Computed example of a mutant assay.
Amino acid sequence: MHTIWKGTISFGLVSIPIKLHAATENQDLPLRTLHNKCHAPIQYKKVCSVCGEEVPQEDIVKAYEYVKGKFVVLDEEELQSIKKELEEKAVEIIDFVKIEEIDPIYFEKSYYISPNEGGVKAYTLLRRALKDSGKVGLAKITIRAKESMAVVRVYEQTLLMETIHFPSEVRKASDVPNIPVVEEVVPKELDTAILLIDQLTTEFEPSKYHDEYRSALLELIERKKAEQTVTPAAAKAQKSNVVDLMAALQASIDQTKPQAKPARKRAPRKKRETS
């Protein structure tokens, strides 16, 4: 399993060298965009919105647009110094709470935690302590230049870290429009709804749920592969400018070459008179 982060996690005076591994993966099927005429992939170029020139990577800088059309340019060195300063900090568990107190709206992404060299004993200690106490640890971590809050908890035999949103990142439910305030529910309809919920209540078994759209798309792709597979048309050989340039230069030379003057006809010699 690929390691995406290395560091330490600590609680109190206990420090554990750890590695993070992504616990989930995106299984979306990537679809390419082709030119319908010749089935060749479409290219996307980075072009300046003002001068229309294609911009190479070395000429691209990052900036923050603080008002429409006004930017603050940020040097890469400045960004890297902030990133390095944050990522060098150890993950410190700052509080322990009950997981039931954290609404699921806060949860973002999950990572498996494995012990790095020399961290097995402390890793085992934290895992057992969390399990026996029924608590989870709240910590801060910086991954890929983004600082996040995180929950450290036990999952099966593994410690799991789940990044969670800061409160400022969660929008207020009171801002959602058209939410009814007064409950006007007919008792009989409510009893029927609760009965339906009871009849559909079961234990959560993740294995019985799957992505139906992905399955249907895979079936469609396999069927299309059997029927026909499109191949992009061969790219046209671009005309070389070297030959054209040489020809143009040679033509220019020929046009400017001074023409040879026609040879002057000599007048016939007069015969010498004899006496």
Rank of each mutant, 00 (worst) to 15 (best):
T3I: 15
I99N: 10
C48D: 10
T33G: 03
Q228M: 08
V170R: 02
A233K: 14
L190W: 01
Y213F: 13
Q250D: 10
D28Y: 10
T201L: 02
Y213E: 13
T231I: 04
K19F: 11
S168Y: 07
D191F: 06
K84R: 01
S168A: 05
S148H: 04
I179P: 05
Y106A: 12
I9A: 07
A139S: 08
A122T: 03
F204G: 03
A216Q: 11
E162H: 09
Q199M: 10
E87W: 15
K45V: 12
S114E: 13
C38E: 03
I253A: 03
R127E: 01
S81D: 07
L217N: 11
L79C: 04
E156W: 04
I105N: 06
A267K: 11
A139Q: 07
V14G: 03
S148D: 11
S275E: 14
R272G: 01
P17L: 02
P56Q: 11
K271M: 06
K135Q: 15
R214N: 13
R171P: 03
H2P: 12
L190G: 08
K45L: 15
K89D: 14
S168E: 13
P180T: 00
I102M: 14
D175Y: 03
A129M: 03
S215P: 03
R32A: 09
I141Q: 03
D211M: 12
D198N: 04
Y123M: 09
I141T: 00
I197W: 02
F96P: 08
K270T: 02
K172R: 03
H35F: 12
L200F: 14
K146S: 13
Y123K: 03
E205C: 05
P232E: 11
L218P: 11
I102R: 04
A226H: 02
V120G: 12
L13P: 10
Y111I: 00
K270Q: 05
S49K: 09
V97N: 02
E85H: 11
T24D: 08
I221L: 07
L249D: 11
I60R: 11
A226V: 09
E219A: 14
S168N: 13
Y123F: 08
P206R: 00
A150T: 01
I197F: 00
V176W: 00
S275R: 14
D59I: 06
T33F: 04
A234I: 15
S49T: 06
E273W: 12
E147N: 13
D191Q: 07
E227T: 08
E100I: 08
I221T: 15
G7C: 05
L196E: 07
A247R: 11
V185A: 08
K46G: 04
Y123A: 12
L200G: 11
E87Q: 12
L196D: 06
V186R: 14
S114W: 03
K46I: 10
V55Y: 04
I253M: 02
L34R: 02
I16R: 00
A234L: 15
V185K: 09
H2S: 12
K70V: 15
E147V: 12
Q43P: 07
E87K: 09
D254V: 01
